[in-house]
Nucleic acid binder design. Structure first.
Length: 745
DNA sequence: CTCCAAATACATTCACACTC
DNA sequence: GAGTGTGAATGTATTTGGAG
């Protein structure tokens, strides 16, 4: 019922959206421009680059016009028995089609774009010229692989195509790929599914060796694990192409089906082996590097640092890219290659590591030898940056924010001073608002004072822009609209830009933006549903002990840092499950001050003072003996770490202070996900505990309120505890059976 | 190479004081 | 006691760089 109400409200907002802005002057309305600003934009942008649901992202098309590199570092012929021992690979996109002159020049473009790097581009141009020349002579059909030719090729492995590779261009003499051959599998001839792949390699195993049986059963298992939507998924349903397979791999957590990490690692490895055998991936082998790369890597002494560079160096060697020529484009094309021909997950992390490793290499050599890559900070900024706007505006904003932070005692319009997070949010909104105006046709120079842009009609314009960008479906307002409008209108009111007439308009607008309150968020509801399975609940409560054991194991092995990490997590989760603190409160526990002790100085509980909590209420909790033991062992086992600190935080940060709540929360979430396969962020634990209480006792409000530390019980009722009515149902059953008994038989 | 933690920029939700 | 206004968190995604 509440959900329905929420939806209705959203729809109201939707119906109103166009009307709301109908009266606005439209001289500033220009068509919406995407934020480019030289950077990628992402997330919920309803128009141009609309968000893709994760399920939809999975299939970049091979021939979709996006140029991809089809080359690999070293591969020796014979590596791909199925694929062909053909000497030269070819461009699959043009296979089997007759070509005319315009096709030939189109091909020139296509070929050029397939060779994005300068050195390669020259070769590509030469190759393409060569092709066009042939085409003009009328003999171009020789160049193309027709379907018939293709099947012939399958039979006759020795068929060489004339699609250019650096090796068959002559003259002039192209630089030779260093001791390697390019890896350029013809995607169209590769098996599409693991079913096909198994069939293809079966003859080599005489269909029945143990090894083959292992591969087959692993592929079957993988299909069942990865394709949960199918009832009976078979290897035939599992795609081979890494670009299609990767999203499936990334979405799967072995813990979710109680499978061990190790078993899953073995299955993944079998999948990779199959892909290697049929030619989707190249054999794992050390390839020869160009001498220039060998020299370049020499200064890297740390094994891991070298390791981070070898794949990249191999890739560059195979394409004749000297270390001196490495730039952003090289990294991009390398990543595209990795995406297409490897099962590496977390590509963005891989990209970061490659960039970092390269920059580390640059820093080691003589200055100027290689070019380090620039930072990509601000990659996801929506708002304008300060330096894009007039200095007068920036200083105006700073003055305003300073006043918000520290208003004078009589500055009633500005209240008591805003908290840090609020200030940050407000600043962010101001710069986003400025961005929206620029997109509506304002010149940057025009934005020279805060009060100039914080006017009712302009704010409404900004909100319209916000709607355009962030509405999930073009109809409903996004949740971010209300806080944003609130900030902007508050600024306008504070700067004295608001007339009485405006005020009623503002009230009207904000009223419509506001979503239905007191609704249990759908996401939370979904995540809590996982705990309907009592096994999941039990395993969550068992997790701290498992992590603690892990920590002890690392300790025994002498891996102190890892031991510390897992001990930290074990204790944090244990405390969280005992007393559901907010993450910032948890992260900032001070073992000298916030742990209550008895006369013998033994820890007996937790006591966080009010000034540290969101509500200002102090938090008190008893700790179980297990927890206390853990904490005491933890403090003594890692006493070296604590001895180095001046502060006494239970969870110290990297350098100083306590761990950052953001990172701590994210880490806990990821760790739980890896070990249980369930999404649990620290705040969800609060909802979980309240829900458990409500499930057991329909009148559990007060208990839940105390557990969560709410001042106001309506908060407890509205935001926590799904109140699924199970307890009430049970109590009703008991009551009704009592009543019915009363009448006798 | 991989994992971890921190920084940053939004995105979303929680929460209290106040009002009627 | 429910609804409102606005403040103050936490959540999520992406990057960086250090450690193992």
């Amino acid at each position: 019922m509440p959900l329905a109400a929420y939806k209705t409200t959203q729809n109201n907002g939707a119906d109103m959206a166009p009307l709301l802005f109908a009266d606005l002057p439209d001289q500033r309305r220009v068509s919406h421009l995407p934020v480019t600003n030289g950077r990628r934009r992402r997330r919920y942008t309803p128009d141009q680059d609309a968000p893709l649901p994760s399920e939809a992202i999975s299939t970049p098309q091979g021939g979709s016009g996006k140029s991809r590199d089809r080359f690999d570092e070293g591969t020796d012929p014979g590596t791909f028995p199925i694929l062909h021992s053909r000497q030269h690979q070819h461009q699959p996109d043009h296979g089997g089609r007759m070509m005319n002159n315009s096709d030939a020049s189109g091909m020139l473009q296509a070929v050029c774009s397939t060779f994005p790097l300068p050195a390669m581009q020259m070769q590509a141009e030469q190759a393409a010229q060569h092709l066009v020349g042939k085409a003009e002579q009328g003999s171009f059909f020789e160049l193309i692989e027709t379907p018939e030719a293709k099947s012939a090729a399958a039979e006759d492995d020795a068929v060489a195509t004339l699609i250019p590779t650096p090796e068959n261009i002559s003259p002039p003499e192209p630089p030779q790929a260093h001791g390697t051959r390019f890896f350029a599998p013809d995607i169209s001839s590769l098996p599409e599914t693991f079913g096909q792949a198994l069939a293809a390699i079966a003859p080599r195993y005489n269909n029945a060796t143990k090894q083959f049986a292992g591969l087959k059963s692993d592929a079957q298992c993988a299909a069942k694990c990865l394709l949960t939507s199918h009832n009976k998924a078979e290897p035939d349903d599992l795609p081979c192409a890494p670009v299609k397979l990767r999203p499936l791999l990334e979405a799967f957590y072995p813990a979710r089906i109680r499978m061990s990490e190790k078993r899953w690692a073995n299955i993944r490895s079998s999948l990779a082996n199959i892909l290697r055998e049929v030619g989707w991936m190249k054999e794992r082998q050390r390839h020869q590097l160009m001498p220039e790369w060998d020299t370049a890597l020499e200064p890297l002494q740390v094994k891991a640092h070298k390791g981070a560079m070898t794949r990249f160096a191999g890739y560059c060697s195979a394409r004749n890219i000297l270390p001196q020529k490495v730039n952003e484009e090289t990294i991009d094309s390398f990543l595209e290659y990795i995406e297409e021909y490897s099962l590496t997950t977390n590509l963005s992390g891989f990209r970061s590591c490659t960039r970092q490793a390269w920059n580390r290499l640059c820093a080691l050599g003589p200055a100027g030898q290689f070019t380090p890559l620039e930072k990509r900070a601000g990659y996801n900024r929506v708002g304008v940056t300060r330096d894009e706007l007039p200095a007068a505006f920036v200083s105006d904003v700073e003055t305003y924010l300073a006043r918000c932070a520290n208003p004078g005692p009589l500055d009633f319009k500005f209240g008591n001073g805003l908290a840090r997070e609020t200030l940050r949010k407000r600043e962010g909104n101001i710069y986003i608002a400025a961005r929206y105006l620029i997109d509506r046709g304002w010149q940057r120079d025009e934005i020279d004072s805060l009060s100039k842009i914080m006017k009712t009609d302009l704010i409404i314009l900004m909100m319209e822009e916000h709607f355009k960008r962030h509405s999930p479906d073009g109809k409903a307002w996004p949740p971010s609209a209300a806080p944003m409008a609130s900030h902007l209108f508050t600024i306008a009111k504070q700067l004295g830009n608001v007339t009485d007439k405006d005020l009623s308009l503002i009230n009207d607008v904000t009223k419509r933006l506001r979503r239905r309150r007191n609704v249990f968020p759908e996401k939370t509801r979904e995540r809590l549903a996982a705990f309907d399975d009592i096994k999941v609940l039990k395993s969550l409560f068992a997790l701290p002990k498992i992590w603690w054991k892990r920590a002890q194991k690392f300790l025994r092995e002498g891996q102190l840092a890892r031991a510390f990490t897992w001990a930290k997590r074990a204790i944090a989760l244990d405390i969280l499950l005992t007393k559901p603190l907010r993450i910032s409160e948890l992260a900032s526990i001070d073992f000298a001050q916030d742990l209550r002790r008895d006369r013998k100085h033994r820890i007996i509980g937790l006591c966080v003072p009010g000034h540290k909590t969101k509500t200002g209420l102090p938090i008190e909790a008893e700790l179980r003996k297990d927890t206390v033991d853990m904490i005491q062992t933890y403090l003594s086992e890692h006493s070296k770490i604590f001895a180095q600190r001046t502060e006494t935080f239970l969870f110290p940060g990297k350098e100083q202070g306590h761990v950052a709540p953001h990172s701590f929360g994210a880490t806990l979430k990821t760790s739980i996900l890896n070990d249980l396969g369930v999404v649990v962020n620290p705040h969800l634990v609060r909802a979980l505990i309240a829900t458990i209480i409500f499930d057991e006792d329909a009148d559990g409000d007060t208990v839940a309120q105390h557990m969560l530390g709410h001042l106001d019980i309506t908060t407890t009722r509205s935001h926590y505890g799904m109140q699924r009515g199970r307890a009430a149902q049970r109590q009703y059953s008991a009551i009704i059976s009592q009543v019915l008994k009363r009448g006798g038989k």
